[in-house]
Design a protein around this nucleic acid. Structure first.
Lengths: 121, 121
DNA sequence: TCGTATTGATTACAGGTGTAATCGGAAGGA
DNA sequence: TCCTTCCGATTACACCTGTAATCAATACGA
């Protein structure tokens, strides 16, 4: 199950909310980024529900939406797909590419080294 | 300029060939993976040419296709887009995610460490 | 009670994608 | 010269995406 770019922004809102949200609430929180109308957000919610990425509970006449899949698992799947497609499953060429583009700051480099050191224990 | 998944496979064939290829040659080399018909490959080539991702030179009645963009630059752009969207521009969370999924073998880890060490000099 | 606002559902519509079939013209063999 | 074949170009068509508008039903305020 793939989630499109626009749908992903809606997922981010739901993932970052500690409680289920109505369509109107989701729209308010996405508004900052995109100039979406409420109708557009409702379309996204319908499509995500149809895909099984979110679920809802009826509260009176409204729905309260929440994510049905964990961000970690979705992001994990997509990450793997990405490194498989572009780098033959190896992460190092990706690191090399981003390093060459100066997309890594010292803090990020230190964090990566810490993760790897931890891995080897 | 985005390249779709199917188009990307055609690009890989052109990127990996030392010389320009005809549509039929491309089709033969993609065949292993997908069960595409020659017509499908021709569609991909037309679309990629329209996007400016490949170019061609006429050789008699045929075209000889070659990539018009470097793999490194395209892959670099997509990588950045990917880490921006899923990890807020930091690479370390991606490393953490893949590490948790055991998607990193020793060789890959060593390669990454070498790249980072090199970076700091 | 009656209109208005609100909500999910349905419909819209252009552009991209996957996967071809068909067409028109040219090259090449009979 | 004529027929077949091979090429790129054009057309096809269903599904996905981005971005809504509209509809039918309901709740709520006057």
């Amino acid at each position: 199950m793939r989630i499109s770019d626009a749908e992903f922004e809606v997922m981010e809102v739901l993932w970052s909310s500690p409680r289920p949200l109505t369509a109107t609430e989701v729209a308010k929180r996405v508004e900052g980024e995109r100039g979406w109308s409420l109708a557009t957000v409702k379309t996204m919610l319908s499509r995500l529900a149809a895909k099984g990425a979110i679920q809802y509970r009826e509260e009176g006449r409204r729905y309260l939406y929440s994510a049905a899949i964990a961000r970690e698992s979705y992001v994990g799947r997509e990450s793997r797909r990405f490194v498989d497609q572009l780098f033959g499953g190896r992460l190092s060429p990706l690191v090399a590419r981003l390093a060459e583009e100066d997309a890594l700051d010292d803090e990020d480099v230190a964090a990566i080294e810490a993760i790897l050191k931890d891995l080897k224990s």
